[in-house]
Design a protein around this nucleic acid. Structure first.
Lengths: 157, 157
DNA sequence: CCTGCTTTGTTGCAATTGCAACAAATTTCT
DNA sequence: AGAAATTTGTTGCAATTGCAACAAAGCAGG
C-alpha cells in the first residue's frame, strides 16, 4: 500500500461523518423535528439578502437534496415556511422567500441541533483539536464565496 | 454565542464531507462505475469471514442504505455480484456471499475511488494533518469492534 | 407438547428521488 | 427584427426508499 495514511484518514472521515449524521437525523426525528434537509433550506434562505433566493441559486447553495428544489419548495410552501414570489425583472424567475414561521422553525431546530452537535461532537474535542479540524476542513473544501451572503451567526447547517 | 468554535468545526466538517461525497459520487458515475453504496456492501462482505454475512449483520455494518438490505441485495444478486445461501443452522437466516465478480468489481471501483480520494482529499493534507484528522475522528466516532472482522487493507469505504 | 414472545427476512404501499422532456422567457448573433 | 441557443422552473415517469404489516422459524417456560 502506497500512501495508506491518506486513505485511512479518508475512511475514518467518511465513516464518522456518515454515522454522526445518522445519529443526529434520528435524534431530530425522535423529537418530532423535520429532517436536516429542511434546516438546510431554511438556513440557506436566512443567510441570503432579504431572506430570498431564486430557485436556481437555492439549488446551487443548498447542501442536501440539490435536485427537485421545486418539489421540496412546494412542500415547504404548503407548510407555510416559505413563500413564492415571481421575479419582476425576469418573468421566468421565482423567488423563494422565508416566512416568519420558517424563521421560527429554523431557530427551534437549531436549538436542538446545536445541543446534538455539542453532545456527539464538540464535547469530545479540545479547543486545539477544534482549531486543527477547522484548518484541515478548509484545506479539503473551500465553499465558493458569494458576495451577498451573510455568515458567521449560528447554525451553519 | 457560546462555544461557537465547536459549532463552526461541525459546520465545516459537515459541509466538507457532504460536498466531497457529492464530488466523488459524481466522478464515479461519470466513469460508468456503480454508486458508493454498492462499494459499501461489497467491501463489507469482503472483510467478513468467508466473504459472507447474514442479512441482519450486513444491515448493521453497512454505512449507507441501512434499510432495504433485502432489495439492494436482490439487485446485486441479479448482477451476479453476490449470492444467497440459506443458513443451515437457522432456517430463517440467509447469507449474502460475495462472488468472484463481486470481488473484482470491488477492486475495480477501489482503483478509481482511491485516485479520487488522493486527488480531492489526501493530496491537500500534510502527513501531520492526516495524523491529526485520524486522531480527531477516532474521538468523535468509534466504530464498534467486531471480533471476526478483518480490517486494515485497502478501501475502508 | 403447547402457548406466547422474539428474531429474521420479505412484501405492499405511499412518499421521495433522479432524470429527461418540456414550455416559457430571455439572450445572442446575424 | 428574427432565428437559434440558453436559462429557468415544472412535470411525468420509473426507480428507490422508508415504514409498517406479515409469515416463518426459533426460543422460553409451563
Amino acid at each position: 500500500m502506497n500512501n495508506s495514511k491518506g486513505l485511512e484518514a479518508w475512511a475514518k472521515f467518511f465513516v464518522a461523518s456518515t454515522r454522526l449524521n445518522q445519529v443526529m437525523e434520528e435524534a431530530m426525528k425522535l423529537d418530532g423535528l423535520p429532517p436536516l434537509e429542511v434546516y438546510d433550506v431554511l438556513w440557506t434562505l436566512e443567510r441570503a439578502p432579504e431572506h430570498a433566493l431564486r430557485f436556481t441559486d437555492l439549488g446551487e447553495r443548498v447542501l442536501l437534496s440539490r435536485c427537485n428544489v421545486t418539489r421540496l419548495a412546494e412542500k415547504l410552501e404548503n407548510q407555510g415556511l416559505i413563500e413564492r414570489e415571481r421575479c419582476p425583472s425576469d418573468r421566468r424567475g421565482v423567488y423563494a422567500v422565508l416566512t416568519k414561521d420558517g424563521l421560527k422553525l429554523r431557530k427551534d431546530m437549531w436549538k436542538r441541533y446545536s445541543e446534538l452537535i455539542e453532545e456527539h461532537f464538540s464535547s469530545h474535542l479540545s479547543e486545539k483539536e477544534q482549531d486543527q479540524l477547522i484548518a484541515i476542513m478548509k484545506k479539503v473544501w473551500q465553499e465558493p464565496v458569494r458576495a451577498d451572503e451573510k455568515n458567521g451567526c449560528p447554525g451553519a447547517v
